[in-house]
Write a protein that binds this DNA or RNA. Structure first.
Lengths: 223, 223
DNA sequence: CCAAAAGTGTTATATATACACCCATGA
DNA sequence: TCATGGGTGTATATATAACACTTTTGG
């Protein structure tokens, strides 16, 4: 998945789908994937599939979602699938093969098998983690303006996030690093935006849940 | 897993382990489980395994955790395992077979394969969900006092939770139902404790994360 | 100098923790 | 009536949402 910034249309969260050429559900859109080899684990496998089949190598985050194992989830012999969430930053727009395309997650075409529910589950997981982890780093270029970050947060969450509060919350949590540089202002003027980057590119829980914390810690984080 | 209330020892979170009789890692403690049949999904399978092998049928919650698929995680041919978290309420103490026993999660014996990390991962998941969902219902009898609830929350989280605040937080979230009945006071007197039950026995997210909520909703929940 | 975009100051509100105090029971 | 455990009232801390206001640029 990745947040789109295609000019014109309102930005949205997109998923890369592959049009099936084989018979069960031929012609329908499906998630990229394939069989697990005996000498690889599932994470290695999904990275290999994406690289080989759709030339997708620039994943900023890969995370296991769930196992789908209903004996009737696909016609014929039962197939056990492990679903993954893989993120690609918005500035990466790789050449995708002819038979694949990015689709808005909130307006999916008819998909094969149970892939629609897998995609929606992945979206929900991503939305949740955007609130309590630093996973935003996986959606944007290394250096970015708060405006861009806001656009992609909004696209992913499905509603308009305030740039002011986004900046504040992420700063308070210590996720943002001021690079010292600025982006040039547009042709219509305006103050040049500071370029920020994320302090860490590993997923970390940055907003530990509030309730039932060990006594004495309150909700403080540092100092 | 279940929270223990064994008199004497400090209460703790326990996990049911089975002593291996077969050769790889013979004699070590391992998680109950077994092979997936062609006509069942993984959730059905784990319930069947628990019922057949350790006579454990009174699970109040079963939840998928993760797939473990490292080709070298067990000796010999690769085995892909789907780990589950299964909860048993504290008042259920089924007859477990000779070769199984409950062990404190924070003081595990030597385990087989990668089972220690699976157990610790399950514990962490349960601890997190205790904060932001109503999963506590799965740990206690249908009707319970706040004191009992506090004991099991404390055992599970690993630190002493305040009964006062536990009551308040869960009430505010609308999770607790006053049954109208009370538990008799102990031999040393004391005010009889109100018996509560959980409003729902399905896992629900009761504390949606704070940051980046749709505009206009603030953090309010009702009214 | 004006429009536009970025960023800061300030206030209101929600939720949780801490702790003092009151309540109901057995002996 | 006293010890014991159960339960409520109230103060405080902290985080976020909302919005007014200031800053910095292009034309």
């Amino acid at each position: 998945m990745r947040p789109s910034s295609d000019s014109g249309a309102p930005p949205s969260l997109q998923v890369l789908l592959w049009r099936r050429a084989l018979d069960p559900h031929i012609g329908r859109w499906s998630l990229p994937g394939g069989r697990l080899r005996a000498d690889e684990d599932v994470a290695t496998s999904i990275r290999r599939q994406l690289a080989e089949k759709v030339d997708m190598r620039q994943l900023t985050h890969v995370e296991q979602l769930a196992v789908f194992s209903d004996p009737r989830r696909v016609p014929g012999p039962r197939v056990v699938a492990t679903a993954f969430l893989g993120l690609v930053p918005s500035d990466v727009d790789p050449e995708v093969p002819e038979d694949t395309a990015w689709h808005p997650v909130d307006d999916l075409p008819r998909t094969a098998f149970d892939h629609e529910s897998i995609v929606l589950g992945a979206r929900d997981r991503l939305r949740a983690k955007l609130s309590y982890t630093n996973i935003g780093f996986a959606l944007v270029p290394r250096d970015f303006t708060i405006s861009l970050l806001r656009e992609h947060y909004s696209a992913t969450l499905g509603y308009r996030v305030s740039a002011t509060n986004l900046q504040r919350v992420l700063s308070r949590r210590g996720l943002l690093v001021d690079t010292g540089r600025t982006a040039p202002s547009g042709r219509s003027g305006g103050r040049p935006a500071t370029l920020y980057s994320f302090a860490s590119h590993d997923v970390q829980i940055t907003d530990p849940f509030a309730a039932f914390k060990p006594p004495g810690t309150g909700r403080e984080r540092s100092s």
